[in-house]
Design a protein around this nucleic acid. Structure first.
Lengths: 228, 228
DNA sequence: ACCTTTATGGAACAGCGTTCCATTCCGGCG
DNA sequence: CGCCGGAATGGAACGCTGTTCCATAAAGGT
């Protein structure tokens, strides 16, 4: 335009932009982050952001990677591999629980750095478990897919209901919808609805991890398979 | 505007709209479907579609539900529960393989009818497996989450690369990127990259399912857990 | 002193989902 | 038979998005 104010006191930086993006996402969910709200919060124009960040996808990927990295940084305890995997999985779980938009992001781009980070950590523990080399990839990706499946599960809690209700009321509402389903077409879901409202997501998640761990252990010491 | 042509020969219907949406999605991927392209293909205006379909999310949910229903309709064979679960899982796998946008959709909304359908079918087989009542929910959702994790995995193959390359070249490209990673930070992923390009997604998926099935079976006949 | 590079921020653009509304037709009622 | 309310249509318009463009400004090298 006509006159232009002087250059900003504190210059923009990629770190600052990512941090502000995380703050907006935490406050308002996945939909709250736009380049305009971001620019407003940073007291700049949307164009300036593009000098530091290629596009929105890159920004989301960077934000996700940062939180996941924090979440799984403290895993290398001296515990057993099984226990390390539980700690690792719960770390990701808690990160998604605290920042539901991370779940959306993890589910939507399976080869982003954050996912690689999780796969790497899982793979290390699977290796430590003594799983033979050819089976490691399958075992690690099975665990990874289970964790990312959770990510999708949580995606809705924030995006669909806008973070306005907490997890318990959400589950109760879903359970209420499930009981009203057709008993002929959905007997199992109906039956299981009762457990839904009172259950603990964290515990259920851990049970799933243990199920896979049991499967890994069992496949390492094969017994006769009576089911085939 | 001034003059208005007569009413259309064949009236619109929800079924027709969903079918056309599926066709567009199959041809151009998730991004190809807009209410404008849809209206153009139906030879109408975007506004008319809203009389039959509430919004885009509803349309996507309906399209996904239809394909998933087809995919798992023929499962109730007389085979063993384990085998039925494999057939079921592979049915979903193949549906996502044939229509990658279904993967995106399944991953993004965990409580849509299509997901309920899968959970119901899985739950029925888990019940038939003889899993005790309290453990059924965990077992079924573990399988479900694994399948939905796959859904996310496939989401990118279509959305990021626009369906321009097939799965093999995509995997080769990912593998090539993985080998160039920092050996200190990503030893496992680097080591595993070699298996990635030559591997069979379907087989790996089935191996994961078997891993969980083994875990379910093992937890039904508990042995001493040496890992805790 | 100059000119290139880095950096900024606001305007502009194309496209999206959705809403609005004038219009058309059909079925039932007086 | 005439009419009229509501089902259905389709195109314009709205507000918003991610992204691009560009005039500007300071910093840095020579």
């Amino acid at each position: 335009m006509t006159d232009r104010s002087e250059r900003r006191a504190e210059p923009l930086s990629r770190e600052q932009i990512v941090a502000t993006a995380i703050a907006i996402l935490d406050e308002g969910g996945a939909d709250a982050l736009t380049f305009r709200t971001l620019a407003a919060r940073l007291a700049t124009g949307s164009g300036a952001i593009y000098w530091h960040v290629a596009d929105k996808q890159t920004l989301l990927t960077a934000a996700t990677d940062q939180l996941v990295a924090q979440a799984i940084a403290h895993v290398n305890g001296g515990a057993s591999p099984n226990e390390a995997i539980r700690v690792l999985a719960l770390g990701v779980f808690d990160a998604i629980d605290a920042h539901p938009w991370v779940g959306v992001q993890l589910a939507n781009d399976p080869w982003q750095p954050a996912v690689l980070r999780i796969l790497e950590a899982v793979g290390a523990q699977v290796t430590a478990l003594g799983v033979p080399k050819q089976a490691r990839f399958n075992a690690a990706t099975a665990l990874l897919r289970f964790i990312l499946g959770l990510a999708g599960q949580y995606a809705v809690g924030s995006s669909r209901f806008g973070g306005e209700m907490d997890r318990t009321t959400l589950l109760t509402e879903v359970a209420a919808r499930w009981v009203q389903l057709d008993p002929v077409e959905h007997p199992f879901v109906r039956q299981v609805a009762a457990e839904l409202s009172g259950h603990d997501d964290r515990q259920q998640f851990l049970a799933g991890v243990d199920l896979i761990l049991a499967g890994i252990e069992r496949s390492r010491r094969p017994t006769r398979d009576t089911s085939r």
